[in-house]
Write a protein that binds this DNA or RNA. Structure first.
Lengths: 254, 254
DNA sequence: GTAATAGTGTCTCTGAGACATTATATA
DNA sequence: TATATAATGTCTCAGAGACACTATTAC
């Protein structure tokens, strides 16, 4: 530990003299794509929490919640902080997705954003804090992103900065991971029916699945409970299932 | 475009008054994991370019090449710049991997690093610039990373910062992507033999493959040429193959 | 010739996909 | 009873894995 560098300095001496202020530096934010899913009548959809900006730039446009990374918190911690501020939850599944570093992506200043994806069951969501936050249904059809709720439908130009691409990438990532990881269960409550589970898979995969085969393929991951769902409408009521304690698939590669 | 915010400012007026200097900001680097692969006698191995640090902190330890992201370049552009400085190449396959944001990861200052993976054929590599750069063979066995070359063998403590984890993640990512993307061909020259191709797959997948089945499965992606390899040692000389122009698999999800 | 590696052909058995059938609720 | 949805059982065919065999070089 007493090694000296080219100018004869130890590490301690070097660090004391080190001036990090010589160069200009970018700001860094953690932006969180908070997803949930709710059964709504016939068809299910993913939902994402967006915030309407009350300030320039992109005033009145809708943005993914985010916050600047402080000097005394890791980027991951900043992401958790933002998530808790917006949903009142902690311990939510959070996964880093991508870092957005183009020069002109925010006209205010040089801002680099690390995007995260958060997945949480609808039941655990507290009503979005503040009037400027709203849940939007989200789907992709053809090459375009669709975002809508009871109040309005957004077009591509209604999203701030490069956030449309952020959302697109998150949906793509989910689609790629859903078959070999456990992420669906992060969107579901502890007890769920097989039809629910299947609809969630279908939404994320953006394709219909064959019911009987789906049951067969999921058999290793879930187990039956004695409870039956109260029948909603006509037809045989579904039985509740839960995850098998040991039926585990990996979640991240890190 | 003439919308005014809560204080009656237009976007132009707001931006003129915006002061990005109020908060302290972290430094951001782009760190490049430059991989190549070379046939070396019996067994092939991936190789990675490392640089021995001549300065505190982590003096004399080996680090992944990196550089600070300038204010007038995107993070991707910074990555390309670093890559070209170190290999003299441009147009190399480059993929963003992960962003490392822990507070104490660099004792000099708060530094957030965006890691990239670069893949290039051995033939296109120019000799590493400077005496401080060296190629290391790299593999994982059990839970540990192995790095070695003709001169020395590195242990976990010989790597700077969190760079061992960076390399580990890159190997994991490669392993996960190799079967459904084109990344192997980024490591190979234009013409290659089937045994070569198979060994590269085996190195990345960290498992032996069955020769005849491997040929069958790759048939859609490559095509035979008339050229035969000069026989090296005993045995039937291998035939050269090249990629089919249309035999394409996707490379990234972005 | 033998040894060694390159390359082809074929068999089998798992498992994904499709469909038929039974079960249980409402009306 | 009819209808709608849940849940189970079975058939088939493509494809992964394993193996046997042929081809071409050095020695």
């Amino acid at each position: 530990m007493e090694e000296r560098n080219g100018r004869g300095l130890t590490e301690r001496e070097f660090l004391e003299r080190y001036d990090p202020g010589k160069y200009e530096r970018p700001s860094v934010t953690a932006d969180i794509l908070i997803f949930t899913a709710k059964e709504c009548g016939e068809d299910s959809h993913l939902q994402i929490l967006l915030i309407q900006r009350k300030e320039h730039p992109c005033m009145n446009r809708w943005a993914v919640p985010g916050g600047f990374v402080g000097m005394k918190e890791s980027v991951d911690e900043a992401a958790e902080r933002v998530l808790e501020e917006k949903t009142g939850q902690s311990g939510v599944y959070l996964e880093q997705l991508y870092t957005w570093g183009d020069v002109g992506r925010d006209p205010r200043a040089r801002i680099i954003s690390v995007s995260y994806m958060a997945l949480t069951p609808w039941e655990k969501i507290r009503p979005a804090a503040g009037m400027d936050a709203a849940w939007y249904f989200v789907s992709r059809s053809g090459g375009t992103l669709r975002l809508w709720n009871e109040d309005r439908e957004l077009s591509g130009q209604d999203l701030a900065f490069d956030h449309a691409r952020m959302i697109w990438l998150a949906l793509e990532r989910m689609k790629n991971k859903v078959l070999y990881t456990d992420i669906v269960f992060r969107l579901l409550p502890d007890k769920f029916t097989f039809p629910e589970l299947q609809r969630f898979y279908e939404v994320i995969l953006e394709e219909k699945l064959h019911g009987p085969n789906f049951r067969r393929d999921m058999a290793a991951l879930v187990e039956m409970t004695d409870e039956k769902c109260k029948s909603q409408g006509v037809g045989k009521p579904a039985r509740y299932y839960r995850r098998k304690p040991d039926g585990v698939r990996p979640e991240t590669e890190l």
